[in-house]
């Protein structure tokens, strides 16, 4: 596998996995990501469930189908890079990592624990595969800009992906990055906004309005797509279109539901976190996410 050119590897994976019904595979993986996120936040006694659940489908599509990135060949200089600019969604990233072999499924349940590499926000010196440390909003997208510029300078074909939160867009640095990405024609960069409309305290609209959001990025000369961030087929299709974009960076505005999959959490700002989940809440959430009793016990008691 490692001997093949990077773009062929990616195409091959699409073909082979598609043969086995890629979308069903990814939906199943995304469900695992949600359940694992809830379980790790339960064990941690703190963490941000709302934004982890909203970005689970996009993250799963990235690691499961889009990124030319393999747990078995993680140090390949030609690998695609992913930066979780909304670092507080770390539980979802760790769960995706566990799903695709970058870390252990049990290990990554030790979220936010002393001595665990699974810190409250991703740290690259603890987990090299998270690519950079994030948690301070606005910085991840700038780091991704630097990666994209550096890869182009070195004539590498690898792509860079960054996921931002919607509240994160209130950081001025994001707009510095937006100008910079377009100016330098970083068509090897694809950013995704997990647009769940809620932030820490309230709805975006009540804190600091973001709309008209797509128009803003179009005005900054990004190639903008607006999609349903829970529709796997649409997510995959949009990533492919972004990969074919020339001369401009891509921005995918993924409309999502905060707390997606857990009815008691959906669209409730209070579940932005950082929250403490009771045993009852965790079980209820896992049941909503389709977990069987054996799986619930494994996730909540199996450590």
């Amino acid at each position: 596998m490692a001997a093949q050119p990077a773009n062929l590897q990616k195409a091959d994976r699409h073909l082979t996995v598609e043969g086995r019904d890629l979308e069903t595979d990814l939906a199943r993986a995304a469900a695992f990501v949600r359940k694992h996120s809830i379980a790790s936040i339960y064990h941690a006694g703190s963490g941000h469930p709302g934004g982890a659940l909203s970005c689970a489908d996009v993250l799963t599509c990235l690691f499961g189908a889009e990124l030319n990135l393999w747990a078995t060949d993680r140090e390949d200089p030609n690998r695609d890079r992913f930066v979780l600019s909304k670092g507080h969604a770390a539980p979802a990233l760790y769960a995706v990592g566990a799903q695709y072999g970058f870390c252990g499924k049990k290990d990554s349940l030790r979220l936010r624990k002393l001595g665990s590499p699974f810190q409250g926000h991703p740290h690259v010196l603890d987990l090299p595969w998270v690519e950079t440390s994030t948690g301070s909003l606005g910085q991840g997208v700038s780091v991704a800009i630097g990666m994209a510029m550096g890869l182009k300078l070195q004539n590498k074909s690898a792509r860079v992906y960054a996921m931002l939160g919607d509240g994160e867009l209130q950081e001025g640095e994001v707009w510095e990055a937006a100008m910079c990405g377009a100016h330098h024609k970083l068509d090897n960069l694809c950013a995704i906004i997990d647009y769940n409309k809620l932030q820490s305290d309230d709805r975006n609209d009540n804190i600091m309005r973001l709309e008209p959001l797509a128009a803003k990025f179009r005005a900054f000369d990004w190639a903008v797509a607006e999609i349903d961030g829970h529709d796997i087929a649409e997510i995959l299709k949009t990533f492919r279109r972004a990969s074919a974009t020339h001369g401009r960076p891509s921005m995918i505005i993924a409309h999502t539901i905060k707390g997606k999959g857990v009815p008691t959490m959906e669209n409730v700002p209070q579940w932005h976190g950082s929250v403490k989940l009771t045993r009852e809440q965790a079980e209820e959430a896992l049941i909503s996410l389709g977990a069987e009793h054996s799986e619930i016990r494994e996730l909540l008691d199996g450590q």
Binding site: G138, S142, V143, A144, I145, G146, G150, G172, E173
Partner: peptide
């Protein structure tokens, strides 16, 4: 701010 953080990406 973007320049400083982008340096991290270039180094990465």
């Amino acid at each position: 701010q973007n320049m400083m953080a982008a340096a991290g990406g270039l180094a990465a």
